[in-house]
């Protein structure tokens, strides 16, 4: 038994080494860096330098506010949408199910840059199809990129478009694991389809929905691509700057590694905290 384990670990060594160097060490290192003033040479230990700045930094609060706003609106809307899509996909009336399943999943596979470019085109003020459609039903054009509220909406729409199908596929798997005869029993109990959905489907899907919500929360906490590419680095005027973008700006533009590390740890801490609250709220009753 012992030697067997030892052999197994010897085979694992290359992976464990890489894991230690490129995962564990950066995590520890950035934690340490967050306590150092990194704009002096040499770096010196100054715990209050970054963390103190964070607490008073309006840019940080702006990014935090934007991130949480997106989180609070986009994640529930997307999960709700994903549930609806999954239920439709699961309908026995649907033809060509495989095709739809692929279509829903496709956005995740599309390159981020390509998808951002397409979104910029679609939402462009004068040439975009979205404004043309709005016009054609008698609504005024929206300047998606120069005003904060439409820009935020645009980010949420884009993220939702990209990830709703992905979540729908996961939820679909959950739906398919609910045995058919439970619904038949409910039908015999004179429970309408709508009530079946709310009293049977949703409760039984809860673990899957929690899983999707946790994944989405973690993803949204790190949101970067969309505000970077679609609204051009958090524009207009930082109106869509997220924590991910602030981290990038501090770490890679200003080369302020200490502050960027503090932001990174704040993001991770928030994601963990929100997830724990979520898990606690959705816990199985004893």
């Amino acid at each position: 038994m012992r030697t067997q384990n030892a052999t197994a670990y010897r085979f694992l060594t290359p992976y464990l080494l890489i894991f230690a160097v490129f995962w564990i060490w950066p995590i520890i290192s950035s934690f340490l860096i967050s306590f150092q003033a990194t704009r002096t040479v040499p770096w010196r230990f100054a715990p209050a330098f970054n963390w103190g700045r964070l607490i008073g930094d309006p840019a940080f609060y702006n990014a935090l506010k934007n991130t949480l706003l997106i989180l609070v609106i986009q994640v529930p809307v997307m999960i709700a949408l994903a549930i609806v899509m999954a239920v439709l996909l699961n309908s026995p009336l649907l033809k060509a199910r495989g095709l739809y399943r692929f279509a829903f999943f496709a956005p995740v596979v599309v390159g981020e840059v390509a998808y951002s470019a397409v979104f910029r085109l679609m939402f462009s003020l004068d040439f975009g199809i979205v404004n043309k459609l709005l016009n054609s039903i008698g609504l005024p054009k929206v300047d998606w990129f120069s005003n904060v509220t439409p820009a935020m909406a645009l980010i949420m729409i884009a993220v939702t478009w990209r990830w709703a199908g992905y979540n729908a596929i996961i939820i679909l798997a959950g739906l398919q694991s609910i045995p058919e005869d439970v619904y038949e029993a409910a039908t015999l109990d004179r429970v309408s389809k709508v009530k079946q959905f709310f009293h049977i489907t949703l409760p039984l899907l809860k673990p899957v929905i929690v899983f999707c919500a946790v994944l989405s929360i973690i993803g949204t906490m790190q949101l970067f691509t969309e505000p970077f590419l679609i609204t051009e680095r958090g524009g207009p005027g930082g109106g869509t700057e997220t924590l991910g973008l602030l981290l990038y700006r501090q770490g890679f533009r200003s080369l302020n590694f200490g502050y960027a590390s503090a932001v990174a740890y704040t993001m991770a801490g928030l994601a963990i905290a929100i997830t724990l609250v979520q898990l606690w709220l959705m816990r199985e009753p004893k």
Binding site: D181, A185, K195, I200
Partner: peptide, 23 residues
């Protein structure tokens, strides 16, 4: 049913009363 088809997330009492409550 052969597989019982009980509502997995409900207690026995809720399983028994579900249909009546819903109506």
């Amino acid at each position: 049913f052969q597989s019982y088809a009980l509502y997995p997330h409900m207690t026995v009492e809720q399983n028994l009363s579900f249909g009546l409550r819903m109506n």
